[in-house]
Amino acid sequence: MPPREGPEDQTVRQYRYLLRTAPLDALEAAHIDALAAIDPAHREVVLRTVQAELVAGAHLRPDDITPLAHLATLGERRSPGVLTRSVPAPALTALADAVINSEPAFGLFSGYAAWDGLDPEPPEEQDDSEHAEKWHAAHATRDGTAPGMNGAFGGV
């Protein structure tokens, strides 16, 4: 991801590194801690950005920290840069600072010194829950979509 306008803030750069390299569970835990710690106005900005950019969490309020952390973490993992490009700078910097200084983020910067600033490949995530493979096998068609779904609106 190229920096916004001008040089990228060191805090946001470190945050981007964590978003791409940290294990998903540690990253989500860091976001829970961070969202609880930041100013409620910044948390609301993050929520509104998640709602607008990820089209998710319409029922959430700014105090719904755990589901907001989950959506933000998954959204960035699935579409790298979607939130880091969209959350306004003051709220992004506050969130980034709180995440990188959270206890769950401790020890996750081992490769940061050698990082060239380009978005590295995210770690492979595996769904090892007992139902994951069964559901996908039972509900996927040859093209990988759910049965009866032709496009986003089921052929409508």
Rank of each mutant, 00 (worst) to 15 (best):
H59W: 10
G6K: 03
H59G: 09
T49N: 08
F106R: 12
D143S: 13
A105P: 02
L60G: 05
A91P: 07
S79R: 14
H136A: 15
I32P: 02
H31T: 00
E124G: 10
P67L: 02
S86N: 15
N101V: 01
D127Y: 05
Q14E: 11
F153Q: 13
P88G: 11
D39L: 12
R77P: 02
V45E: 12
V50C: 10
P62V: 14
T21D: 01
D39W: 14
A152N: 11
L47A: 09
L19W: 03
D127R: 06
D119L: 12
G155H: 07
R77E: 05
P123G: 08
F153S: 15
A69N: 00
F109I: 12
V156A: 15
H136D: 15
W135R: 11
G148Q: 08
E8W: 05
L68E: 01
P62T: 13
T84A: 05
R85Q: 13
S79L: 15
P40A: 13
G117V: 08
P2T: 03
H136M: 14
I32D: 05
G154W: 10
G117W: 09
L27C: 01
Y112V: 08
E76G: 01
H42W: 10
V45N: 09
E103H: 03
I32T: 08
A22S: 00
I100N: 11
W115L: 09
W115I: 11
Y112N: 06
G117C: 06
M1K: 09
P90L: 10
L24R: 02
E5N: 12
P90D: 09
V46Y: 04
E130P: 03
L118K: 12
V50E: 05
P122Y: 02
A52I: 06
R4W: 07
H70N: 08
D97Y: 07
P67Q: 01
I65C: 05
A114T: 15
A37E: 10
L118W: 09
A34C: 04
E44V: 09
D116E: 04
A94L: 06
V12E: 07
L18E: 01
Q51L: 01
V87T: 06
L27R: 01
H31Y: 04
D33G: 02
E28V: 03
R20M: 07
